[in-house]
Design a protein around this nucleic acid. Structure first.
Lengths: 121, 121
DNA sequence: AGTAGTGGTATCGCATGGATACCTGGTCTA
DNA sequence: TAGACCAGGTATCCATGCGATACCACTACT
């Protein structure tokens, strides 16, 4: 039982961060910010994400310490989002996942087609 | 515009797979199955996941070609889930992410506390 | 016969996320 | 100075997802 409890404790903490960090929009926003700092609407144009979700994603990443929200101008309100040192350490693992996806997309498509065919039978 | 369209096309395909592969339960189930094949209820005991979500997760992973569902006995219905060759290739990237989480949990906690403090001000 | 385990499906209610509209300001141009 | 347009959001509605719960068919054990 102690074993189980410990195990679940670990995964509970893990799960929370995992859910935030591995969220689809988080991953894609992160990729963008790794290339260079971006403005809010710049990100909107780059990704098919709604304003609401982008706002939520940026807030979450900011809270987690992965991106920084920098006011670059007061008068015409201008805000820049940039990746933090912590965020940069995420780049390699995330890139590895993205590379995996790119590399296995075809295989996944075939697997899905096979599965759906068998299900239709 | 062609640039944008192409970019969105790529991310659309990416997004789908990302969403499935990086799903919290998928990641944790995958970790378990990497250790050894598991039965349905075995997984339930190992992870704080509901039956419904576990069923959905396993179906999704099966469809994506990442896990295999093997009937090991008809009479007493017994089913084993095991990782596929494709699934195994996911292990390294996923482990990298998990390692990242473990490594930076404290830093994330501090960042969150800081954020919440500032917000409260 | 009763209880427990196996691998599920069905239903309900709440929270999350997308689409859409709207808002507060500032800039630019006519 | 009015109108159009940009910025960075908030507010609202609605569909979908997910957890909790109940239930089912079958087998095994006692």
């Amino acid at each position: 039982m102690a074993e189980t409890a410990e195990r679940l404790d670990i995964t509970a903490a893990r799960r929370e961060v995992l859910g935030q960090v591995l969220d689809t929009w988080s991953v894609l926003v992160l990729e963008e910010l790794c290339e260079s700092p971006r403005r809010f609407n710049e990100l909107r144009r780059l990704l098919p994400v709604t304003q609401k979700s982008l706002t939520a994603t940026l807030r979450r990443l900011e809270r987690t310490g992965i991106v920084e929200r920098i006011v670059i101008s007061d008068r015409p309100v201008a805000i820049e989002y940039r990746i933090t040192r912590l965020g940069k350490t995420l780049r390699d693992p995330i890139d590895a996942i993205l590379a995996w996806v790119e590399q296995h997309l075809d295989e996944i498509d075939r697997a899905r087609a096979r599965f759906d065919d068998e299900a239709a039978t």
